[in-house]
Structures are given as structure tokens and as C-alpha cells.
Design a protein around this nucleic acid. Sequence first.
RNA 1: GUGAGUGUAGCUCAAUUGGUAGAGCACUGGACUGUGGCUCCAGCGGUCGAGGGUUCAAUCCCCUUCACUCACCCCA
Length: 421
Amino acid sequence: MNIQAIKGVKDILPGEIEVWQYIEDKAKNILETYGFSEIRVPIFEYTELFSRSIGETTDIVEKEMYTFEESAGKKITLRPEGTAPVVRAYIEHQLYNKSHITKLYYLGPMFRHERPQAGRYRQFYQIGAEALGIDSPVLDAEVLSMLDNIIKELDIQGLDLQINSLGCKDCRPGYREALKGFLKDKFPMLCENCQSRMERNPLRVLDCKSRTCKEAVANAPIIPDYLCGHCKEHFDKVKETLKTLKVSFSTNPRLVRGLDYYTKTTFELVSTNLGAQNTVAAGGRYDGLVEELGGPKTPGIGFAIGMERLASLIKKDKFRTNIPYIFIATIGDEAKGIVIPIIDGLRKKGIKVETDYEGLSLKSQMRKADKFQARYVLIIGEDEIKKGSVLLRDMEKKTQEEIDINNLTEVLAAKLMIPAK
RNA sequence: GUGAGUGUAGCUCAAUUGGUAGAGCACUGGACUGUGGCUCCAGCGGUCGAGGGUUCAAUCCCCUUCACUCACCCCA
């Protein structure tokens, strides 16, 4: 094989795509019930949009973006996530002037240059939702409840919704300093990575998986103890509303998200049935992002679902590929010719038809019809041509009848209960 | 970027202490001159990932390389 797909990307073939379509249908339905409207934004943006929103010191910006230069010298990046482009569009089209709250959802591919592994691809698909304009904790809970509904609708088990609060620009610095002070004593215990992270982004040390780092932060100060009154009240209200909505969750004071723009409520939906990459969906509040990107001071909250990960959790047995209603079997060249306009006519009536193009024996054509799981087979040979009729075989009942070729579409439409046009 | 594992027929996998490969599924035909799902028979199908080395001889041993997979890292 000479040319193959680029490392870390994959084709979604018939047989698997049905699962994706199913997820998309269900998710769109629920999103729209909650008042979210679809937005489609480009898959590339000026690099600056991502470096400013995601954060210069994050791995995504530092080493995972697909960036190239335009002729003018401006740098362009294939989007590594969806929130920044949506917020950019929100500002650019001044959607904040149309309504106090703007609820948007998107779905499409994201790109990150990472080493591929189970559940991690270089082009991966997300369904995301963003609610902009309101900072009420009730909205946070509603967004989480919506996510919960989506996974319940898809009947996915073994998921744990973990939530935390990262505080705001008033209380986070205090916590950050307290954590840094604590980590200073533990410095020798930290992994190389975390030692360098201490100055730049100490919160990330909290969810490092290295054993010694885990030990080091075991008694570290936790964020909830440092939240300001406003943030604490907000977080309490989120939890209270989640209980009212009967959304089960667990709090994880060590939950830190990778992107810089998160504030207050953050969350992850983690599966026990996946490999190392077990986060199915994640998100949080980002009250400073719109302003940071040049818009008016506007709060926001959102999440993204990883399609590949979600799809791998869905039982595939209930999905079937495109099944034709009718298979047309022919015997002889004359029959093959006669059948061409018949097939065309049936298809124009909306009846799915398949036939043989290879000159197979009748036996093989029957086998093929069976493989297609066709409900009926139309058999046309020399005898039928002479009589001006066709044989219609019911594959399930194993019966067949002879019908006048002129009544064919009517008879089929009646059998298949297709309304006349 | 680092580490480990795996590359043999379209697919899933065997085998040979080194003597150039086999099964199941799939596909095609036949048993059943024009009728499916079961059965039986036959056929089709392989540069044994690629390149080099050792050897009389390499799919097997050695080196290099490529690809895939999983994990670290990171994250959806």
C-alpha cells in the first residue's frame, strides 16, 4: 500500500458512521431543546486567537498546534479546540447585542499534533456547547444537566461527573501563592516537568500523575478553602441545583483544566470503560475570555464532548447499514436492458433498489440479495419478458408471485407502504 | 518527544529448533440447465512490512528502517 492516511487520523467507514449519526441526532435534539442553536465556524483561525485564549504556557499552544504561514506572513492555525473560534464569532458579529444570553453549539474536527493512542487522535471531533452572557450558577447546573441528559439518552454507563471550582481573578492568585509556598518545600519530590511548572502554572502540579508528585500534593492546600465569598456561594449554588435536578456528581478539589481561560466551575466527565484517555467530555466557566479577546465583559460557560471516545462507548449491534428494500435479479442481456428504466423509476419513487452489474448466476444474485438483507427480490428472465410480467419474491416469507410489469411500482409502493406522489 | 509490543492471503490468525507457507471467514463456480440464508466440493488469492547482513539456503538469526498499537506526556 503506497499512500495511506496521515498518522493519528482515521476514516469513519459505513458500519461505524451510523453510530456517529445516531449520537449527532440525539445530541442536536437535546441541545436545541435547551435553546442552543448551531454555529459553524472555520476550522482555521489566526494563531493569535488560540495563543491568547488557551494560554501561551499550555502544551497545546507550545507544541501541539498545526500552524502554517500565509503569504502575507500572518500565521494561521488549524483549530485545536472550539471555544475560542465561537467566542471570536460572538464578538465579531456582536451577538451580545441581540440578546442577553446567547446559546451556541458546534460540531466538527479539531486538530492537535500529539502522539496518537487509544482515544487520542490528531484530528478528532467534538460536539461543544457555549452559553454566553449570564453568570448565574443555575445556568452552570443547567448546562451540566444537559450534558447528563445527552449521555442518559445515549444510554452510556460507567461515567463519573467530577466538578470543581477554580475561583476567579480575585481569589485564584491567593490560592496560587499558597500552593506555591507549599510546593517549595516539596520541590525535590516533584517530577522534572512539575518543577518547571511550579513558576509558570503551579495548579497543574495538582493533577500530575507521577507517583511522587501525587504524594507531594497529598496534603496541599485545596482550592475550595481559598474561594472568595462570591465564588464559594456560586459553587454551593451549582451543587445545590445539581441535586435538585438529580444529576449525580462528585467533587474533585484537584480537578484542574488544561486551558488558561477557565474560572469558577470546571468539570470532567470520566469513563471507567476507556483506556488512559478516559475523559469523554469536559468544560467549565470562562468569565474573562470574551473581554480578553476584545469583546465586552461577558461571562460564559461551555463544554466539549469527544466524539471518538463517546462513540467507542456505544454498543454497535443495534445499528444497520443502508439496506435496500428490493434487489433486482436478471437472467440474460435483454432483461438487464429492460431493468434499467425500472430501477430508475423505483428510485425516483423513493424505493431503495440494488441489482447485479457483473452478470452473476441467478443463484449468486439471490445470495447477494440475501447479503444485502433485501426484503423483496424482483426476478426478470426470458419467460417473464415474454409474458410481460415479473416475479416478486418475498425473502422473509419465501413466497413469490407473478405480477404484471405495468403494475409494478404500484404493487411495490403498496407493499412497502410508500405514499403515492 | 520517550518507552514497550506487533507487522504472514481482502479480514482474523497459525506454522517452520533456518530447507521459500496453512486454516477459518470473505469472494467466485458447482452439487441444485432460472431461485437466498444450512451442508459438501472446487477455485481464486501471499514481493511472509521494506532494505541490508550472516548462511549452501532466511518468513525465522543479526543490523537498519518504515508502519501500526498501547503507555508516558498531554487532553476531548
